[in-house]
C-alpha cells in the first residue's frame, strides 16, 4: 500500500484543479468498482454493488490539496500569489513549489522589519525568470502551485505533502480492493474543493442521496512536545470522530463504528477536534439529512509540507472502512 500512497501524495491536485489526481484515482479503482463518473465540479463518484438493495453508504475522501494561486506577474518575472485553502505564510517561507506543468519555483519575501510582518502580500514565487514576458511563457495568472515534496518512508511513519487527504484516498482505494461481498451499495466519492469549504462533498451527496455518510480525512495529533491539548496520538489506531466544527457525529454512527472496531479488533481512539471540518459536515446536511461520521487519520504538522502519519493507523482505517462497507442490517434511522 505504501507505493499507492506515494503515487497519490506525489501527484498534483490543488483545490479546483484536481484533474491529474482524479485521473490517477480513476485508473487505480477501475477494476474494483461497477461504475465511475465525474460530475460538474470534478468529483469522482464510483459505485460498487450497483445492484445491491441494501442501504447506500457514501464514503468520501477529498482529492484536493492546499496550494497557491498566481494573482500577479511583475515586470521582473516575480509571481505574486494568494492562498488556495488554509496556508500559513510562516510555513511558506523558503519552500519550493511546483505548477501543474512541472515548472518549479521557490518562495521569497520582501525585506521585513520583524518576523511577524510576514504576510502573504509580501511574498512572491521566483520561477527563475527575469521578465514578465519570460515568466508568462511558463505561468499565467490563475495558475496554481503545490508544495514540492516527495514522500519519505520512515518505516512505521510516512512523511509527505498532501497527506491531507491523499491518505484518505489511499485508504478508500485500498478498502475497495479488500472489500468482500456486501449487501450495501457502496459509493466511493473522491471529492474536490474540500479545502475551500467542503464544496465537492456537498454536490456529490446531493446526487448520491446516501443513507449513511462516512468521511475519511486527517485529523490533528496532540502527541508532540507541548502540543495543543488534543487526545489523539499517532500509532493509537483509527480515530473515530465525535465532533468538530462541521459535525456532531450522529450517535448511531459513532456507536456503529465503535462496535465494528471492537468486534474486529481494530485499534481505535476517540477524537474531539476543536477546529476544522470534513466532508461529513457537508454530507450530513444534504437534503433531509444523512446520519454521518468520520474516520480520521491522526496526522502531525497539518497543512505544511511535511505531514506525518503512522502506517499502522492507516491499516486500521482501511480495516474499519472495510468493516463498515460490509456491515449487515444497517438501520440508522432509529
Amino acid at each position: 500500500m505504501k507505493e499507492l500512497i506515494r503515487k497519490l501524495v506525489e501527484t498534483f491536485g490543488v483545490a479546483g484543479h484536481e484533474e491529474p489526481i482524479a485521473d490517477l484515482i480513476c485508473d487505480e479503482i477501475a477494476d474494483d468498482v461497477d461504475e465511475i463518473r465525474r460530475d460538474t465540479l470534478g468529483n469522482v463518484i464510483a459505485v460498487r454493488g450497483v445492484q445491491n438493495d441494501g442501504p447506500t453508504i457514501m464514503f468520501s475522501a477529498h482529492m484536493d490539496e492546499i496550494g497557491l494561486v498566481v494573482t500577479h506577474i511583475d515586470e521582473n518575472g516575480f509571481l505574486r500569489f494568494s492562498n488556495v485553502g488554509g496556508v500559513n505564510p510562516h510555513r511558506l517561507s523558503d519552500q519550493r513549489v511546483v505548477f501543474a506543468n512541472g515548472r518549479m519555483g521557490c518562495i521569497g519575501h520582501e525585506r521585513l522589519e520583524k518576523v511577524t510582518d510576514l504576510k502573504m502580500e509580501k511574498m512572491f514565487i521566483d520561477i527563475g525568470c527575469s521578465s514578465a514576458d519570460e515568466a508568462e511563457e511558463h505561468v499565467s495568472i490563475g495558475d496554481v502551485a503545490s508544495f514540492l515534496r516527495p514522500m519519505n518512508d520512515l518505516g512505521d511513519r510516512l512523511v509527505s505533502k498532501a497527506m491531507d487527504d491523499r491518505i484518505g484516498c489511499a485508504i478508500l482505494i485500498q478498502a475497495l480492493k479488500e472489500m468482500k461481498d456486501t449487501p450495501n451499495r457502496v459509493v466511493a466519492v473522491f471529492s474536490v474543493q474540500e479545502e475551500l469549504g467542503l464544496r465537492g462533498a456537498r454536490t456529490a451527496a446531493y446526487q448520491v442521496e446516501p443513507d449513511l455518510g462516512v468521511a475519511l480525512d486527517v485529523t490533528g495529533a496532540g502527541d508532540t512536545p507541548k502540543a495543543r491539548r488534543l487526545d489523539v496520538s499517532l500509532g493509537d489506531g483509527a480515530a473515530i470522530k465525535v465532533m468538530d466544527r462541521s459535525l456532531m457525529t450522529h450517535p448511531a454512527v459513532k456507536g456503529l463504528m465503535v462496535r465494528l472496531a471492537e468486534e474486529n479488533d481494530i485499534p481505535h481512539q476517540m477524537e474531539v477536534l476543536e477546529f476544522g471540518g470534513t466532508d461529513a459536515g457537508a454530507i450530513h446536511l444534504s437534503r433531509t439529512g444523512v446520519p454521518s461520521g468520520c474516520i480520521s487519520i491522526p496526522t502531525r504538522y497539518l497543512h505544511g509540507p511535511s505531514e506525518m502519519v503512522d502506517y499502522g493507523d492507516v491499516r486500521a482505517c482501511v480495516d474499519l472502512t472495510v468493516a463498515i462497507a460490509g456491515a449487515e442490517n444497517l438501520d440508522l434511522r432509529r
Binding site: 460538474t40 454536490t203 446531493y206
Partner: peptide, 9 residues
C-alpha cells in the same frame, strides 16, 4: 450558485 444541487458551471 455553483454549489446548487448537483453543481452548476
Amino acid at each position: 450558485i455553483h454549489l446548487t444541487r448537483e453543481g452548476i458551471p
